[in-house]
Design a protein around this nucleic acid. Structure first.
Length: 476
RNA sequence: GUCCCCAUCGUCUAGUUGGUUAGGACACCAGCCUUUCAAGCUGGCGACACGGGUUCGAGUCCCGUUGGGGAUGCCA
C-alpha cells in the first residue's frame, strides 16, 4: 500500500479557527498514526480575502498546538501554472467549456427557474456553444455527465454521492482567468499525491463535483473522510461573529495548548471511555473508525476542566515559565521566580483553569500595593476582629521561623487565648488584611508566600481599616 | 425550493456479527472534609426524538414522520 499522505488546507482569511484546528489535528494524527506524511497547503486562490498576516497567524496557531508538518507550506496561488494547464487540457478535450453568461443574467435565470419550481442549477446555455478563446469575457465551466452517480465511499459517512443530474456545470475558472477552489484543490491533491482528504463535513455535498473533476482529469480520487461539524451554542456551524473560535484568542486568555488539543480531539472522535489524550496518545490511538457522524457542540466547560487537569500536571519551573507573561500583565513589571511565588503557584493549581486565572490570583503577592475589596472588608474587618488581629500581630512578631508549622501553632495559641474561638474567626479577618480578599489559598500558605514583614505591615493596615470603621459606627 | 447528511443523559460520548440493570467524562445537586475558595472523596439527578416494520428479541437492521444541520457562490 502507498504511504499515506494527508494535508491541511486552510484559507488564510483570518485566525486559525477552532474547526480548522480540529481538521488539522485529525489530518496530523492520521498521518502520524500511519507513519505517513502531513503537509500544509495554503488555499489562497481568493485574492481579495487572503492575506499574509492571516497565513502567519494560521501557521503560528498550528505551531502553538504542536502540529508539525512535513512538507510545505505550499501556496495555491503559486501553482496557478498547473491549474491553468489543467483547465486548458480540459477545454481541449471538451471536458470543460467557455461560458459567456454574465453574473446578472445567471442570477436572473436562476431565480426564474427557482420560481417556476426548478432546482436553480446552471441551465447549460453555453454548454454546446464551443466558444473559442476569442469569445471575450468568459468563465470556464466543467462539463459534467448528464446522468449517472458521482459516488465515493466516505471513510466516515460511508457510501456517498449524488446523481450527476443534481449538480450543475460548475465554474472552474473566473472571468479574470484565475482558477477556482474546486479545480485547484483537485489538481493540487493529485500533484501532491494526497491519499486521504480529511476535511469538514461542510465539504461533503461538494465532493461529487470534485469526483467529477477527478474523472475529467483521468485521475483516481483519494479517500475522503468528512468530519462532522463543530457547532456553537446556536447549534449552527461555528461563526466568527457568534462564537469564540479563534485559537489565538484561546491562547491569549491563558488556555493551555494541551487542554485545547484534548478538548477538540474529543469533539467527534472517541477511544472507548478515555478522556485524557496527549498529542502522543492521539498519534498512537487515532483512527477514522471512531470518528462519529453527528455534529458536536463546543462547550467550554470541559475545556475548563481539562485546563485545570493539565495545570496540575505541569512541573514547577515550566508552570512558572508558562504563567510568567500573564503575571507580568498583572504586575505591570517583570516578575522573577521566587520560593514564595513558586509555592503560591503550586497552591493555585487546584484553583485555576487557565494561566490567566492563576495569574489573577497572585495579585496580592506580586504587587506591593493591595486593594481591599469592599465586600470582604465589610464582612470580616469588623470591630469584633480588632482584638483578635491585635493579639495575632503580637504573637506573629515573635514567631521564630516564618513557616507553616510555626504559623499554625501561633494561630492555635491565639484562638485558644481568645476564648477558644473558631479558626475562621481569626483566619478570615487575617486573610482580608493581608490579601484584600476573602478568598485565597490556605491562610498559612498565604502568609508564608507574602513574607513576615509585608504580613505584619498589612495586618497593621487591616487593623487601621477595622478601627476606622468601628469609629465611624460609634460616631453615628 | 432542490440535493445531501445527522439523531443515546444539559454537553461530549461508549455501544462496532441484534440479547447491556444502556457505561464513562464534564456540568449540575447533596453529603463528607474544612480557616475562605478550591481540590479531593462519596452519593444523586439524568438519554436511546416519534411511529411502524423485520425478529423469539431492536439503542443497534428497514421504512416513514418530526426535528436539526450542511450544500446549493465568478468563497474556501
Amino acid at each position: 500500500m502507498k504511504s499515506i499522505r494527508t494535508r491541511f488546507a486552510p484559507s488564510p482569511t483570518g485566525f486559525l479557527h477552532l474547526g480548522s484546528a480540529r481538521t488539522a489535528l485529525f489530518n496530523w494524527a492520521f498521518a502520524r498514526h500511519h507513519g505517513g506524511t502531513f503537509l500544509l497547503r495554503v488555499e489562497d486562490t481568493d485574492h481579495d480575502r487572503s492575506t499574509l498576516e492571516s497565513e502567519a497567524a494560521v501557521l503560528e496557531g498550528l505551531r502553538w498546538l504542536g502540529l508539525d508538518w512535513d512538507e510545505g507550506p505550499f501556496r495555491q496561488s503559486e501553482r496557478s501554472d498547473r491549474h491553468r494547464a489543467a483547465i486548458a487540457s480540459l477545454i481541449a478535450s471538451g471536458r470543460a467549456y467557455r461560458c459567456v453568461c454574465s453574473k446578472d443574467s445567471l442570477e436572473e435565470r436562476k431565480n426564474q427557474d427557482l420560481a417556476s419550481g426548478g432546482n436553480g442549477l446552471y441551465d447549460g446555455r453555453c454548454r454546446d456553444l464551443t466558444l473559442g478563446a476569442d469569445c471575450g469575457d468568459h468563465t470556464v465551466r466543467i462539463r459534467l455527465p448528464q446522468e449517472g452517480a458521482l459516488a465515493f465511499d466516505d471513510l466516515v459517512f460511508g457510501p456517498s454521492g449524488q446523481d450527476a443530474s443534481q449538480i450543475g456545470d460548475a465554474i472552474i475558472q473566473r472571468s479574470d482567468g484565475t482558477p477556482l477552489y474546486n479545480l485547484a484543490v483537485v489538481v493540487d491533491d493529485i500533484d501532491m499525491e494526497i491519499t486521504h482528504v480529511i476535511r469538514g463535513a461542510d465539504h461533503h455535498p461538494n465532493t461529487p463535483l470534485q469526483v467529477a473533476i477527478y474523472q475529467a482529469l483521468d485521475a483516481e480520487p483519494p479517500f475522503f473522510a468528512h468530519v462532522p461539524l463543530i457547532v456553537g451554542e446556536s447549534g449552527k456551524k461555528l461563526s466568527k461573529r457568534r462564537d469564540n473560535v479563534s485559537i489565538q484568542e484561546f491562547q491569549e486568555e491563558g488556555q493551555l495548548h494541551e487542554a485545547l488539543v484534548n478538548w477538540i480531539v474529543r469533539l467527534g472522535w472517541s477511544h472507548g471511555d478515555d478522556e485524557v489524550f496527549s498529542l502522543d496518545d492521539i498519534a498512537r490511538l487515532f483512527d477514522l473508525d471512531h470518528v462519529g457522524r453527528s455534529a458536536a457542540r463546543a462547550e467550554p466547560a470541559k475545556l475548563q476542566w481539562l485546563g485545570q487537569h493539565y495545570i496540575k500536571g505541569l512541573k514547577n519551573d515550566e508552570l512558572f515559565q508558562r504563567v510568567k507573561p500573564f503575571l507580568e500583565e498583572i504586575a505591570e513589571q517583570p516578575v522573577q521566580d521566587s520560593p514564595g511565588l513558586s509555592h503560591l503557584l503550586d497552591a493555585l493549581r487546584e484553583r485555576s483553569h487557565t494561566l490567566m486565572e492563576m495569574a489573577e490570583q497572585t495579585r496580592w503577592l506580586i504587587r506591593d500595593e493591595i486593594e481591599y475589596e469592599e465586600k470582604a472588608v465589610q464582612k470580616h474587618l469588623r470591630p469584633v476582629s480588632i482584638p483578635l488581629l491585635q493579639a495575632l500581630r503580637t504573637r506573629l512578631e515573635s514567631v521564630e521561623t516564618w513557616d507553616e508549622g510555626q504559623l499554625e501553632r501561633a494561630f492555635e495559641h491565639v484562638a485558644e487565648q481568645e476564648g477558644g474561638i473558631k479558626m475562621g474567626k481569626l483566619a478570615q479577618p487575617t486573610r482580608v488584611a493581608v490579601t484584600g480578599r476573602a478568598v485565597s489559598p490556605g491562610i498559612y500558605e498565604t502568609l508564608v508566600a507574602i513574607g513576615r514583614e509585608r504580613c505584619l505591615a498589612r495586618l497593621g493596615a487591616g487593623l487601621s481599616i477595622a478601627e476606622a470603621r468601628a469609629a465611624a459606627q460609634t460616631g453615628s
